[in-house]
Design a protein around this nucleic acid. Sequence first.
DNA 1: AACATGATATTGTCCGACAATCAGACAGGC
DNA 2: GCCTGTCTGATTGTCGGACAATATCATGTT
Lengths: 252, 252
Amino acid sequence: MRAAFEPLGFAPAYLRVSEAIRARILRRELQEGEVMPTETELARQFEVNRSTVREALRKLESAGLLGRRRGGKRLVVTRPTRESVGGGLSQALALHRARVVDVWEALQAVQPGIAAAAAERHSAAALKKLEEAARIFAARDREREVAVADVASFFDALGEAAANPVFNLLNEPLLRLLKPSLAVIIDRVPQARSRIEAAQKAIVAAVKARDAKAADEWMTRHIRDFRRGYEVAGIALSTEVGEDLGGAPALS
Amino acid sequence: MRAAFEPLGFAPAYLRVSEAIRARILRRELQEGEVMPTETELARQFEVNRSTVREALRKLESAGLLGRRRGGKRLVVTRPTRESVGGGLSQALALHRARVVDVWEALQAVQPGIAAAAAERHSAAALKKLEEAARIFAARDREREVAVADVASFFDALGEAAANPVFNLLNEPLLRLLKPSLAVIIDRVPQARSRIEAAQKAIVAAVKARDAKAADEWMTRHIRDFRRGYEVAGIALSTEVGEDLGGAPALS
DNA sequence: AACATGATATTGTCCGACAATCAGACAGGC
DNA sequence: GCCTGTCTGATTGTCGGACAATATCATGTT
């Protein structure tokens, strides 16, 4: 009995519908921004009930392939945003019991490469944004948790400067998971702000000078510093990263 | 007119239901493996119609938080698999017009770190799997596209050896996107197999010796070799990675 | 204990209905 | 000309009920 039979794949209608639409989106037959036909029309075309269509649409919606304009009613073809992808990924990581040290390690692996890439091929506009991000963090020295968001912005800007969508998408979830613990660090470690500021300045300089090697090294040091931060702040490296549940339950 | 008004956030019922369930899963009040109440029961508890509940469930299903056992009817709480997360991410990357060079660059950034981590703290079992993966690739010298899957397995095994869920989840989508072009390389570049084999051997040795630095370096070289492969195989680095649409439309 | 059997529960799908509201047209007032 | 109010139609969100197919479970049989 060498070859056991696969259960023959009957998929329920709502899945087949959603796959059909998904395929057309990925094949770019449905372009980004295009408004979808109405539910009734889709039901007519697929020859299924509207309820069935709606179930299919919900799947695509939460995959980030369909969305709607602010306050809009009709669905439009969308390409998954950093947020939607990042949300899914960080949620998954939370459930996989990822620890801060795991996230840190990933950052350690990824960020230097991003910095190097950014140094090599940033555009003028991207550089401007990066400098701006660094400036903002440096300026608002007295604010509270806004600083955390500013740090994230810096990494984001760097990711954009690297002009690599892969980096951009990978960045988002890591930063999201980093934020809570970073907030603690900034609260508890007095010198954290100045160290971060210094690192950002150095990185910006390296990027500006298109010195990939220097950018890489500074970033490596920067991330290593975070680890020191954890220790000084008394955050156990084996703490599990928890999803900030209750985050933005989607706006109609 | 300093403060513009936020649109007040009314969310439709199916979203509120899905968020409610999601929150309880993330908060671990619903444990992995637990079977969900029936749709009718949920409808009763939330005081909405069953259709509404179903739409909510479809969302969670495609987020990978709910799934069902092989041929099962009831939904069970699941934690997103590598495949489900990877599918979403690689799909997003395809739509973001990521190019092979982008994916390659990300690999270049991530893999050496993974190799180093694997060297530092692999378990005996993980090492065994890694060696096994390398052995399989080396052995099946005459097979066709299975080789590609074997390469992926090697990276997978390495990711597992690194014992970091973040690495594991990041790995998956990158490998998935790499596969098609890797197949072309193996087809067109005669020496590709032996070079990969050699690199794998070296990496395994470094990991076994718990020599993080060597593992890092060999992996760096290994990935760089892929780039050479692209050039020799005549694959333009600016080729867009395309999702293999039609892949496993989900099995009932 | 393993297995066949039948009753029950549950999902997948359909139909039809209605309120809310979004989009666009249209008219009136400043 | 631009803003406001009003109207109409189209579309979504939600509901209730229905039914076939089948997974689940308790039961009885060997």
